[in-house]
């Protein structure tokens, strides 16, 4: 099975590590920028997290978050940054499918696809 040398696997993993770091950096930048915008707009209002009342329907769906962010809503923009953060490890698993396929390690291609399916199910189920 191992057609390609082990060095390639290591390099690919390092590349994946870099991709994860970029994802986190991008998400943190968006959250920070949107957060400043949010504080400018709502900084003077009273916080209320003591009583749980869930989030508005818009911010509980992926399409709704995009819609809210595109409309320039501060909370929607933060939520978009959070979505990018959640997508980062999912993208990492997707890249691993490719890495194992390049190595022709089919057992792990299947294993990784199962993990990816669970992640996508969680993100898209309602």
């Amino acid at each position: 099975m191992a057609a390609s040398p082990k060095i390639d696997e290591k390099k690919f993993e390092q590349w994946i590590g870099l991709q994860l770091r970029i994802g986190v950096l991008l998400a943190a930048t968006i959250v920070l920028a949107a957060g400043i915008f949010y504080l400018k707009k709502y900084g003077g209002t009273a916080p209320d997290y003591h009583v749980y009342k869930s989030e508005p329907a818009e911010l509980r769906q992926i399409t709704g978050v995009f819609h809210s962010a595109l409309s320039g809503h501060a909370r929607g923009l933060i939520a978009l940054g959070l979505l990018i953060l959640i997508a980062t490890p999912i993208a990492r698993v997707a890249f691993s499918v490719v890495a194992f396929a390049l190595e022709r390690d089919w057992l792990y291609v299947v294993t990784t696809i199962i993990v990816l399916a669970v992640l996508l199910y969680s993100l898209t189920s309602t």
Partner: peptide
């Protein structure tokens, strides 16, 4: 990431607090 999606749908992810 596997539970984060479900948290999102349930409305546990508040942008103002998570930020």
């Amino acid at each position: 990431a596997a539970s984060a999606g479900i948290y999102l749908h349930r409305g546990y992810l508040d942008p103002g607090l998570a930020m």
